[in-house]
Amino acid sequence: MAAPAFVRAFDSDLWWSFRRSPVTVLSAVVALVCVGGALLAPLLAPHNPFDLASLNLLDAFKPPAWAAEGDLAYPLGTDDQGRDMLSAIMYGARVSLLVGVSAVLFSTLLGVALGLLAGYLGGAVDAVLMRIADIQLTFPSILVALLVDGVVRAALPREVHDQVALFVVIFAIGISNWPQFARTVRGSTLVERNKEYVLAARVIGLSRLRIMLTHVLPNVLGPVLVIATLSLGFAILAEATLSFLGVGVPPTQPSLGTLIRIGNDFLFSGEWWITIFPGAALVAMVLSVNLLGDWLRDALNPKLR
């Protein structure tokens, strides 16, 4: 029952401020193209880069179609194994997006739950949770993710690890990012819990859990939406970084980061397209998502309006 109010309260204002900002509209278009291309890769991609049977080593290192030796069948050229770069990027974006969205969902759930508990219950719960968050925030997120990945890698045998690698990356990135959510939610919860509508619910004698979920939670979600959007950019980049370092997703499911790493080997031998195009796709995706997040933050913050 909270959802319609949540949407209604700001939909018209959002739409208005959205249309007024050309940068935002452009970002949305770019983001839509990225997401659409990624999700619909099996339908839209000209080739299936993972179908070993269709690969032809003779097609390796083809430059983009507009270059002199280009081939229209491979619009963005091919890599060292003759894979179509455009298709590889589309499939790679799929993996990047999957990891990014899952990691953000994970850190949102964890951060919101812990922030809500810390803010509403206060006392020792609050102190312990927030000190943990403080300590974690003193390490760069990517370091935390590397650490988690390293620990899991050392603990699991190689075959098992390859199977769960995707989840490990999601977990590693998600866990490195929860304190942001927790702190924001805790801050808003501290404000909301003393408002009189929460007191009214306490006078009725509702349980603390029910008050947290039905009263406080819907009222602290606004900033969470903003952080989640901004974190999505971070999470995609973090995944790319991990994959670039070779500790991310398994090579059987290359993400944009993996593609950039592979291409990096050929950057100085002249085959620039193998790394530049995945890089450009990554920049376009992250930048558009971040610009959307910035706009959302400004639009939801009445003080800046």
Binding site: M1, A2, A5, F6, A9, K195, E196, Y197, L199, A200, H215, P218, N219
Partner: peptide, 9 residues
């Protein structure tokens, strides 16, 4: 302005 949950009907 604070005693009614703004997200509820």
């Amino acid at each position: 302005y604070a005693s009614l949950n703004p997200r509820w009907r």
